[in-house]
C-alpha cells in the first residue's frame, strides 16, 4: 500500500512537469528575460506577427492616454462588433466584447450599453486595473472574432481557443480551452472553463479536464468531449511552429482561435504557460519534451 503510494509519487515526479521544473529546465535556460515583453505586450506581439505575415486579429484603435478617449465615438461608429482589450492584460481579464444588434444599438453580453460605459471601461484599463503589474496600461480595440461551430455544442458564449506548447519550436502538447456558463465566457481553466486534450498528430480531442478533474462528457449537458476534430489542424500546427521562431523564446505557449470566416488566427503568446494542459491531456510533459535537443 505504502510502497504503491511511494511508487505513484515517484512516477508522477517523472511524468508531470511542475512549476519548479518548468522554470528551472525550460523557462530560465530557453527564455531570455529581455524577450518577455514580446509575449507580455499584446501590441508588440502583433507587430512581430505582422512582420512574419501570421494571421491575427487586426487592431482598430489604440488608447494610450485619457485624451485619446475623445476619438472613441468616431472609432466605433462604423463597426458592427469589436473587442476592447488591455495591452498587458492576463487570464482574459478586462476584455469586453461589444456587438451591435439589428437596430445598431451597442450590446455586451446581450445587454445594451452606452458609450459612456465603454469609456469608463477603457479608463479603468488605462489606470492599470487589469494589467499584470497593476500599473498604468494602454487599451485597444480589436476586430471581433466570431467563433466557428467546432465547439458550438459544448461551449457557452465566449471564444474557445487552442493552446499549443512548444519546446525549441517543437510542439509538445496542445489543448482547446472552451468557455462554460461557469467561466462566464472566459477561456480560463481557473475560472471553470473546459480544457480538452488534443492529439498533436490528428487534431482530434482525447478527453477533458474540468475544475482539475478528468471528465469525458460536459458536466451539465452530457455531450462527449473526446473525438472532436479541430478544423485547419495542419495550418494551426504550422502557424504555431512558425510563430515560435520569431519570439526568441525556446519554451512558449501560443494561443490560436478559429474565426468563422478568416480561419485560424494567432491571438496571444505566453512565455510562462501554465501546467494544466497536462491534466487536459491526461499525460505529463516530461516524457513529451525532446530534452536531447539540448
Amino acid at each position: 500500500m505504502i510502497r504503491r503510494f511511494v511508487n505513484g509519487i515517484r512516477s508522477l515526479n517523472n511524468v508531470v512537469l511542475g512549476i519548479n521544473a518548468r522554470n528551472l529546465a525550460c523557462v530560465y535556460p530557453l527564455n531570455p528575460r529581455r524577450y518577455f515583453p514580446r509575449a507580455d505586450s499584446k501590441l508588440l506581439c502583433k507587430q512581430l506577427l505582422t512582420e512574419r505575415r501570421i494571421p491575427h486579429p487586426s487592431t482598430l484603435a489604440v488608447y494610450n492616454q485619457y485624451r485619446d478617449l475623445q476619438y472613441l465615438q468616431t472609432d466605433i461608429e462604423k463597426l458592427d462588433g469589436f473587442v476592447i482589450k488591455p495591452e498587458r492584460g492576463y487570464g482574459g481579464r478586462g476584455i469586453l466584447v461589444v456587438k451591435r444588434n439589428s437596430e445598431r444599438i451597442l450590446q455586451t453580453g446581450g445587454k445594451p450599453v452606452d458609450i459612456e460605459l465603454l469609456r469608463t471601461h477603457i479608463y479603468r484599463i488605462l489606470t492599470g486595473c487589469f494589467s499584470l503589474e497593476k500599473v498604468s496600461d494602454s487599451g485597444f480595440i480589436e476586430q471581433l472574432i466570431v467563433a466557428d461551430d467546432t465547439f458550438a455544442d459544448i461551449s457557452f458564449g465566449g471564444l474557445p481557443d487552442i493552446r499549443i506548447i512548444l519546446y525549441r519550436q517543437v510542439p509538445v502538447m496542445a489543448m482547446a480551452r472552451v468557455p462554460t456558463a461557469e467561466s462566464e465566457g472566459l477561456a480560463n481553466l481557473h475560472q471553470g472553463a473546459l480544457g480538452l486534450g488534443i492529439d498533436l498528430k490528428t487534431g482530434i480531442t482525447t478527453g477533458a479536464v474540468y475544475k482539475n478533474r478528468l471528465v469525458s462528457h460536459t458536466p451539465d449537458t452530457n455531450k462527449p468531449l473526446a473525438g472532436i476534430q479541430i478544423p485547419f489542424w495542419k495550418e494551426i500546427h504550422e502557424m504555431a511552429v512558425r510563430s515560435s521562431q520569431i519570439f526568441g523564446l525556446g519554451y512558449l505557449g501560443v494561443d490560436i482561435v478559429i474565426d468563422r470566416w478568416q480561419g485560424p488566427m494567432m491571438i496571444e503568446v505566453n512565455a510562462r504557460p501554465g501546467l494544466n494542459i497536462q491534466l487536459a491531456n491526461a499525460s505529463g510533459l516530461i516524457p513529451r519534451i525532446p530534452w536531447e535537443a539540448n
Binding site: 512516477s11 508522477l12 511524468v15 512549476i19 519548479n20 521544473a21 482539475n212 491534466l279 505529463g284
Partner: peptide
C-alpha cells in the same frame, strides 16, 4: 532554488495521474 521536484500541492492537483498510472 535548484530543486526541480513537484510541489506538494501539485501532487494534490495532479493526483488523478497517480490513480491513472496504477
Amino acid at each position: 532554488g535548484r530543486w526541480p521536484g513537484l510541489r506538494l500541492l501539485e501532487y494534490v492537483r495532479f493526483r488523478e495521474f497517480i490513480s491513472e498510472h496504477q
